[in-house]
Every structure is written in structure tokens, then in C-alpha cells.
């Protein structure tokens, strides 16, 4: 029994990790007052880039790095249009998602159905002695490091304070000398990098194969998670694992022969997102107190 619990915990961590990366990245972006709805598109491109590089070189690490770069490149495109040119952030984010999804299927065409043979990593072998957690991929560990670092950055450094100030009141931040545009660019690039890693994790670790529709709305769920978390990193982490757990519970239930159609089970994460979104957004005062005050509003000097 305890091994089943251990299995469930590991499975939850494994399934929740892409959401941790993507949602943590988007959280930082939104804390700077920018809403980038292109997470899904950046994840798709990150996934295909990582997969292509890993297939060509056999190196997962290089794949992850390229995915990060790809995500940052796309987010730079977003930042130029939405932060510098003051284009509508929702429209640009949607464009980014549509673009990333199509770019992913264009580039990934020749990889459809291919599987990646993962060479065991040295780090993994060293950690294998640790009970439960030892089975986890280094990227899972890295997500915890990143989470801690992000939390520390946001709440314990003056740079984090500056970023939050830009998100609350860019005019005041500008008046006391913070470079609003530069901070928004950096935050957006950070979000792009994390979305890229999230995509790479899905295609390299989670499935280790490439199919179209691989990301399956995870980027959108990550955007929703930031709202659920009322823009706080700790709740973001918890929410990501809650959703990871829900995804896994569905697989466990299926293998245990629960008599519900598999399509209904697959729909559960999306339905759960809708329900939780409605429950959280319901409290208008709480939302207004937590949302970065300048979220989605362009700033020009």
C-alpha cells in the first residue's frame, strides 16, 4: 500500500512539474504588470525544439537549453509588440499561441510518432538511493530550486520589490527611477524561458515522444493557475501539484478499471480549471486586492 502512495506522490510530482515551470514564469510576468497569454505557444515551440535537438545530439541538457532560448525568443517577440509598441496584450498573447502552435506542427512534422531513447543520467544514478524522491528527474529538482529562488527574489530582494512596484504602479516606479520598460522586458523573457523549459520537460521527460497536440492546453492551465494562486508563488506550486495529481488520478482510475469513459476522465483537468476559476474569481474584493494593479495595461513615458 505504501508503495502505491509513493507511486502516486512521484506521479503527481512528475505530472505537475511542467505546470510549476510555466505557471511560475507567468506569475513573474504578471507581477510586472504584463499578461502573456502565449504560454501555450511558447511551450509547444519549446517542446519541439528540445525534442529535435535531443534527437539530433542525444543530449537532453542541450535540448532544454535550446528550448529555453526558443521560449525567450518568442517572448521577446511578445515584448516588442506588447511592451514597446503597446499593442493589446491579450491579442498579442493569442497571436503568440496560434503562432507557436502552428510553428510547432510545421517543425515537428517529421518527428511525429518518434520516441526518444533517454540515456540514464549520471545525476539520476547518484540520487537513486534516496527513497521516493530519488526517482525524480533532475528537472523536477531544478523546478524546486527555481521556485525557491523566485520566491526569494520577489519578496526578499530590492529587485523583486522593484518588479512588483512596476506591476502595481508603473508611473510611480518610473517616477522614482526604475526602468519600467526594461523590467517588463526581463520579466517577459524570464516567463518565456520557463515556458520553454516546461515544454522541453513535456516532450523529453514526461512523454519522451513527439505528437501533435502534445501540450494539450497545459499552457492555458498554467495561465489559469496564476489566477487561482492569486499571484502568489506558494499557492502556484500547490495548485500545479493539485492539477498534476488530478491528471494522475485519472490514469490510476483508468488502470484500476473505473467504468467511466476515458474521454470524460481526460476532460476532468479542463472542467476542474473552469470550476476552480469560477470559485476563486467569485470573491471580487479578494481578486482586486491581489491582482497586480496595472495588469494588462500598457505603459508609456
Amino acid at each position: 500500500m505504501s508503495s502505491l502512495v509513493a507511486q502516486l506522490i512521484v506521479a503527481t510530482l512528475v505530472a505537475g512539474t511542467p505546470l510549476v515551470y510555466a505557471a511560475l514564469g507567468e506569475l513573474v510576468v504578471e507581477r510586472a504588470g504584463v499578461v502573456n497569454m502565449g504560454v501555450e505557444g511558447m511551450m509547444v515551440v519549446g517542446a519541439v525544439a528540445a525534442f529535435a535537438v535531443a534527437m539530433a545530439t542525444g543530449s537532453l541538457g542541450l535540448g532544454v537549453l535550446v528550448a529555453m532560448a526558443a521560449g525567450m525568443l518568442l517572448s521577446l517577440l511578445f515584448a516588442v509588440l506588447a511592451v514597446s509598441f503597446n499593442a493589446n496584450q491579450v491579442a498579442v498573447g493569442l497571436a503568440l499561441t496560434i503562432f507557436g502552435t502552428s510553428l510547432g506542427s510545421y517543425l515537428g512534422k517529421s518527428y511525429v510518432g518518434m520516441a526518444l531513447v533517454v540515456p540514464p543520467s549520471g545525476l539520476g544514478a547518484a540520487a537513486a538511493d534516496i527513497p521516493i524522491l530519488g526517482q525524480l528527474h533532475p528537472l523536477v529538482w531544478l523546478s524546486w530550486v527555481l521556485f525557491t529562488a523566485t520566491w526569494f527574489f520577489l519578496y526578499r530582494t530590492k529587485y523583486g520589490l522593484a518588479l512588483r512596484a512596476v506591476g502595481e504602479s508603473p508611473a510611480s516606479a518610473h517616477a522614482i527611477g526604475y526602468p519600467v520598460i526594461r523590467i517588463r522586458y526581463l520579466a517577459t523573457l524570464f516567463g518565456g524561458a520557463l515556458a520553454g523549459i516546461a515544454g522541453a520537460y513535456v516532450s523529453l521527460v514526461y512523454t519522451a515522444l513527439w505528437t501533435e497536440g502534445l501540450i494539450a492546453g497545459r499552457g492555458w492551465i498554467a495561465v489559469a493557475l496564476v489566477v487561482f494562486a492569486t499571484w502568489r508563488p506558494g499557492r502556484c506550486l500547490a495548485g500545479a501539484y493539485l492539477f498534476g495529481g488530478a491528471t494522475m488520478a485519472q490514469l490510476f482510475a483508468q488502470s484500476a478499471g473505473v467504468g467511466l469513459p476515458s474521454e470524460l476522465m481526460s476532460a476532468l483537468p479542463y472542467l476542474a480549471t473552469i470550476v476552480v476559476l469560477a470559485l476563486i474569481s467569485r470573491d471580487e474584493t479578494m481578486m482586486r486586492l491581489n491582482v497586480p494593479a496595472s495588469l494588462g495595461k500598457p505603459f508609456s513615458i
Partner: peptide, 12 residues
């Protein structure tokens, strides 16, 4: 409930 129509309609 003031829920974002973007996210809800997309999930659906």
C-alpha cells in the same frame, strides 16, 4: 462569478 471568459471558453 467574474471568471475570465478567455480561459473558460478556451478550456471548453
Amino acid at each position: 462569478f467574474n471568471a475570465s471568459e478567455i480561459l473558460v471558453s478556451l478550456m471548453l
